[in-house]
């Protein structure tokens, strides 16, 4: 009984993860500019990785494999946002600006720059 439950949870988790990854990839193709695509990549890095590794962990049970999967997940959860921040910061320093900022934000953007 427990076995079936764990299998079901694992399959559900893998399915949700795969769905999030497909949506994120679709967003990377579909969204209009770099600054919005970053958020689509963020979905892959967090929800996609989290759910897929959770599903695999449920399959593996309490073994060394689960520990390795946990290591991979923790590692990606630490480096993922760091890499995303590095890319965003590099683009920002290269004066790449979001298209269609809501309202009159261009002024805000530059005032933020001067303060630094």
């Amino acid at each position: 009984m427990i076995g079936i439950l764990v299998q079901g949870a694992s399959w559900l988790s893998l399915g949700i993860g795969a769905a999030f990854i497909l949506i994120g990839a679709l967003g990377i193709i579909r969204l209009p500019d770099f600054w919005s695509r970053i958020h689509a990549a963020g979905i892959i890095d967090t929800a996609g990785v989290g759910f897929i590794t959770l599903g695999l962990m449920l399959q593996a049970g309490f073994t060394l494999i689960t520990l390795k999967l946990l290591l991979i997940a923790v590692f990606i959860f630490i480096t993922g946002p760091t890499a995303t921040h590095a890319i965003a910061n590099a683009a920002f320093a290269a004066r790449l600006r979001p298209f269609a900022l809501a309202g009159d934000e261009s002024g805000t953007f530059d005032s933020g720059k001067k303060k630094s």
């Binding site: 958020h39 963020g42 979905i43 890095d45 946002p81 921040h85 965003a88 920002f92």
Partner: peptide, 10 residues
């Protein structure tokens, strides 16, 4: 940055 929808730029 981890929360999708927001990214720390600087």
């Amino acid at each position: 940055t981890l929360t999708p929808g927001t990214v720390t730029v600087e």
